[in-house]
Computed example of a mutant assay.
Amino acid sequence: MTPRTDLPLHRILSDEGFRIFFPLAALHAGLWPMIWVLLWSFDLPFARDLPPGIWHGYEMIFGAWGAALIGFLTTAAPEWSDSKRLRGRILWWLAASWGFARIAGLTGADLLIWPAALADLIWLGFLPSYLLVLSIRIRTDRLLSFAGWGLALAGLGMWARLQMAMGDVDGAMRALTLAGLLFAGLLGLALARITVPVTNEVLDPTGRTSPFRPHPGRLNLGPGLVALAAFSDLAGGSAAVTGYLWIGAGAAFMERMAEGFIGRAAFRAEILGLMAAAGFSGAGMIALGAARLGASWPEVAALHLVVMGGLGLGVLAVLAIAGRFHTGQGLGLSRRSKAAFLLISLATLLRVLPEMGVMPWPPGPLHGIAALAWAAGFLFWLWDYWPALRDPATLGQLH
């Protein structure tokens, strides 16, 4: 069947979730922090009762990574369950609810906290509900883990909004910290699903064999230990107890990184990107645990290793790999996409290492070079993939 070439752009973008939400995730991840750091000098135009940093933390977790999550789940869930994909109006409604909350976050207007909370609740509540309904309809349990983590994430998001509305800065920061770490656990689930087929395609492009088979008992070890550590945090565990638990969770992510050492093929950009995402997440959790046990660096530096390095590279890997597969292309990242991975890694190190006392602060405005490298990484990806995302000839193509 010859693909149509006369479709309007809005029809093309709403044909599948990743076509709308992957570009939105890249634009938000790249531009919002750069505006906050370089244009508004760590301030927001209408922020009064809340520190701008609270708005910034919420936006990175539920803004950029939220869009990536919507695009990933609305694209992957139908594929995993062999069901009809979401298309058209429902995707635009999700984009509108997500987008309204992001505009509120960019302004920092206290009056918009509750409307923004309602807008976020629409998509945060929709995702686990959609997965649960799909699980019941198709009679599968493959989506239940993502539904459970989605419900937990929605709860933390609304808890953070409530604390913001009440002006409780410490409570909001605690909720956002747990939400960022919970997102890392969700990333671990996604990596468990993505790494196996990607590694097997790298090792055997013909698809005739499956030479890579991870140990089933360790497949979801990282997310499980994240859940345990987060529950201990919620239950009021001591700094020592939670510190050791986060070190254990980090070690599980480091083990996931070690699974990428598959010989010479480990130097493929796709494998390196997935390994680096797990490695940054693990290093951040270990650094967080060490900070609670008395290490000299602040917890916020460790959290940025997780949220910037782990989630940043993990989201970029999902955007790059799923974006190629679902536009009918095989593995093989371009120079722009490879540069994007390097830029996100550089931005993370420039943001974190000086705060940890490992390197001197770079010249220029505080975090300015890191913000520019971060923005360039995600905009490079968008520059690379936009032609395929908007091309009607790629509709319905799955490699």
Rank of each mutant, 00 (worst) to 15 (best):
E201S: 04
E355K: 08
A29F: 07
W114Y: 03
H28L: 12
I90A: 15
R11D: 13
T2G: 00
R48K: 09
V37M: 02
G279I: 00
A295F: 02
L94N: 11
G294K: 01
L24Q: 06
R193L: 05
V169D: 14
A96Q: 09
A25S: 15
S238A: 11
L333F: 13
L303D: 00
A25W: 09
W98A: 04
R4M: 08
A375S: 14
L272R: 02
L106G: 06
I103P: 04
L38Q: 02
G167R: 09
G71S: 13
F212I: 08
A276Q: 03
P8R: 10
P211H: 07
W55C: 06
F261Q: 05
R161S: 11
G88I: 12
A322N: 14
E79M: 11
G309F: 09
R4E: 11
M34V: 05
H28K: 05
S345L: 13
G224W: 03
A239I: 05
A101S: 01
L311D: 07
L349W: 01
G125R: 07
E355Y: 06
A175M: 12
F380P: 04
P214C: 07
A370L: 01
T75P: 11
L176N: 10
I122Q: 04
L187W: 09
P363F: 07
D391A: 10
Q163H: 14
A184R: 03
T206S: 15
L350V: 03
A68R: 14
Q329H: 11
L274A: 00
L7D: 07
W149A: 14
L372A: 12
S81P: 06
A116I: 01
G71Q: 09
W55K: 05
F378H: 04
A287V: 00
F100V: 12
R218A: 13
P211V: 09
G167K: 09
L343N: 06
G185N: 12
W374C: 04
F253Q: 04
H56D: 08
W36H: 15
L181E: 07
W297A: 01
A320T: 08
R208C: 04
L245T: 08
G63Q: 08
G332K: 06
G250M: 10
I262W: 01
A278K: 00
H367K: 05
G243R: 01
R335S: 15
F378E: 02
A375P: 03
G377W: 10
V307D: 04
T177R: 15
W159H: 08
I70Q: 05
V37F: 03
V202A: 02
I70V: 15
M257D: 02
H367V: 00
D43P: 02
E59M: 15
T209M: 09
R19V: 13
V198Q: 04
I122K: 02
S41G: 05
W65P: 03
G180P: 10
G17E: 14
S83W: 11
N200F: 05
A393Q: 13
L191K: 00
L24Y: 06
A229G: 06
L333S: 05
A152V: 13
L131M: 15
L288K: 06
P51Q: 13
G396L: 10
L181D: 05
G185E: 12
M257E: 06
G17L: 13
S281Y: 00
A371R: 01
H304C: 04
L379A: 11
S135V: 07
A269R: 07
L274S: 00
S97C: 14
L234R: 08
S83Y: 11
L225K: 02
I271N: 00
A295Y: 02
F146G: 00
